[in-house]
Design a protein around this nucleic acid. Sequence first.
DNA 1: GCAAGGTC
Length: 918
Amino acid sequence: MADRQIRALNVAEKPSVAKAVSGILSRSPQSNGLRVREGRSRYNKIFEFDYVIRGQHFQMAFTSVTGHLMELEFDDRYRKWYSCDPIELYHAPVLKSVPQDKLDIRRTLEEEARKSQWLILWLDCDREGENIAFEVVEVCAQANRNLNIWRARFSALIEREIHHSMQNLVRPNQLFADAVDVRQEIDLRIGASFTRFQTMLLRDAFVLDFASEDRNIILSYGPCQFPTLGFIVERYWEIQAHEPEEFWTINCTHNNNEGIATFNWMRGHLFDYTCATMLYEMCIQEPTATVTKVRQQEKLKYPPHPLSTIELEKRASRYFRMSSEITMKVAEDLYQAGFISYPRTETDGFSERTDLRSIVQEQEGHQLWGSYARRLLDPEANLWRHPVGGGHDDKAHPPIHPTKFSTGESSWSADHHKLYELVVRHFLACVSQPAVGAETTVEIDIAGELFSACGRVILAKNYLDVYRYESWGGSIIPTYDFGQQFVPATLTLDSGVTRPPPLLSEADLLGCMDKAGIGTDATMHDHIKKLLDRFYATKDSNTRFSPTNLGEALVMGYDEMGYELWKPYLRAMMESDMKEVSNGAKRKAEVLETCLQQMKACFSDARSNKEKLFEAMSIFFQRSNRPSGSAQHMAGEVVRRCGVCQNNDMVLRKKPDGNFMVGCLGFPLCRSAFWLPGSLLEAVVTQTVCEICTPGPIFKIQFKFRRVEIPPNFDADHLGCIGGCDDTLRQLVEICGTGSRNIPTVSGRGQGHPSLSSSGNVHGSARRQEVCMHCSQAGHSSNLCPSLASRGRGGRPPEINQQNGEESIPCDSCGAPCSLRTANTDANRGRKFYSCRSQGCNFFVWEENATGGRRAATGNGSQSNQSRRGGGLGRGSRGGARSGNATFVSATGEPISGRCFACGDPSHFANACPSRGR
DNA sequence: GCAAGGTC
């Protein structure tokens, strides 16, 4: 028989389900018992047993995952915050993969799948479960292409149900999984784009004094967290907007030897003082009251529905002021230890098949509620009532109920005690009769005005005996008969003022989220916690939420833009889209495309309206003097309009290798780029507009160079322009090279690729097209700019000028004397150079690069590094030869060869060009 | 570093 056996791999969503289902299935007579062995993951064991499906013998291996096996992430290139413009995140490639911490589960699945012919998926029967099922399929099918794949559909871990689903296996539902794929992708793209956008925009622009280390705070945006914040802000604004209004009401009391009755004016209250006074005076003039109605009726107060997650969270908050986050942590502990059922459930009604009485029976021994449990099971007490559900069913889990008796464990905290007691008392309450009361309502007439009073007597407390968290007040009033007349003890005209609604409590907030479909039972508390962690909201000692300045400013900013990104509509729209994908009405790709297109447009609009966010933030926070994070990280501070495509801005960026460039936002459609010197340490776009370069505006950049990598007479700090007017920048590009040299050439030069250039600023990059910094035209670099070639040239040749015995030469730039000095930086120690003494002039030339005539004339024998090395790289070592390419050694020791970009002469570089600056 | 959804 063993030969005919099929081996099947069963996979559940969590270890507890694998264990429970294996336990049930292995109790059949053919199972040969239940064996357990370790898998690769310490949490996910493998259970083994035999089973017969419709006459076919199976050898079952039953293991589990822990929720989602895979994660959706952006392609590596887009993961770093400053790697791209956030708007690109609407199209950037995304990948689903198994994260590091789940690799061991993947190995178990692969190993077991290879040994199996069938795969049976026991994931939870909801959309997320179906999606996880397909993640499991992807991993298993890669290991074994011939698997026969089945889905078990079950709604409770009950013997009959589990056997039934095993005997009636179906195929997994791709549409359900697709719906989740849609949600994941939209959440990721929207969340990441807006989070990066608002964080980079605002974090460094304002003094956010609430956080000790405000440089690291993240101003996140999420389709669940923002609407949750929206509820808090909206209530807060409602309170702020409330204007107290005075009102008047007439109150009346009457007492006799039976007690006191307080009668309320049936008009409630009036805001018109004159009117209230007139009516009151009429009552005073004829104060005799006549009883016009006496109504007695039985009233029932019903026990709560069976406990769902949200109700558990709301009630723990209301009764114990326990946060939803703590509630879920403690509930998880109790569940793990087997004391309560699965705590993440939307179901608020018990299945007919649940053995409710045995759950009650287990609690009979408890000293606090044991006697109540015994009464419940006593038919004579007439206390039992089948629980009435609230109409919600997630088809996966029963309502939260006790699963094991405990009088309290030594490891339990006070919160564990409270929560276990709540679960037990709630369960006992919902299988109990409602409380019964007798209510008496009396109405009287005084001078035509009607008043009423109400009294209540509790006839049977029933469930209230065990559910001590709820009370039902009783008040006794005297007996009245129809037509009876009396004179009130007091008849007063009282004033009051209207009050604003209270701040939202945690229970209110959970209620709002539940109603609007924000989050799931398993995640709502996370969204609330996130608001506190992000400094968007605070919770006071009464568990009531207020927005912080930051939270209010963000909502205000988007509100001013006219976007309802902080309202729950976006989530509601996504939920309805998901439903349509689930039922096949819409295809996944079409929903994704439409939704992302809309959100991208919205993002783009929001970005162009960013002043609204700035204005809102300015109300609450001081502007900071810090350079913005985006500028620091080159995320895209605009430098100028792109002269090539004319369509996009060019922004300053820092590449992953540390080099800087100014690139067009239209990349990859437009590849124009300007690479900055490789010696650059930091660069920040300033608000200063260059007054020389056109077309403007071109914003100047504050550069900070690495001291040791630039010639000694250049300032490490330089406010420069990429528009073409900045000689210093040009010299440094030529001397130090650009970042683009470090990027490997994708294809060889000169192969006709339009983005390649034969030399110049972007010579190493096959990705970007060069842009001349002189004329802003594409196709050549600044050193080959035709506009420069036509400039007036032919100035006087350099001369030696001696003053006070010092060696000096006239400055090529301004004509002032240049002194011979000795470098003392690490990279160039001992090397001689000439530098201009004139203030504000940056002219500099290494001694060996000075003109041959001058070197010969100075004849001081100073030797360059190059000549000492014998490399023959400096012009000096060639004895002043004017033929061949000029060569130069950069500060990093790299030889650079080329020609003067000013006059095109290959014998020297521009910094030594005789024609420059004239 | 970013979302929300599973779960340990």
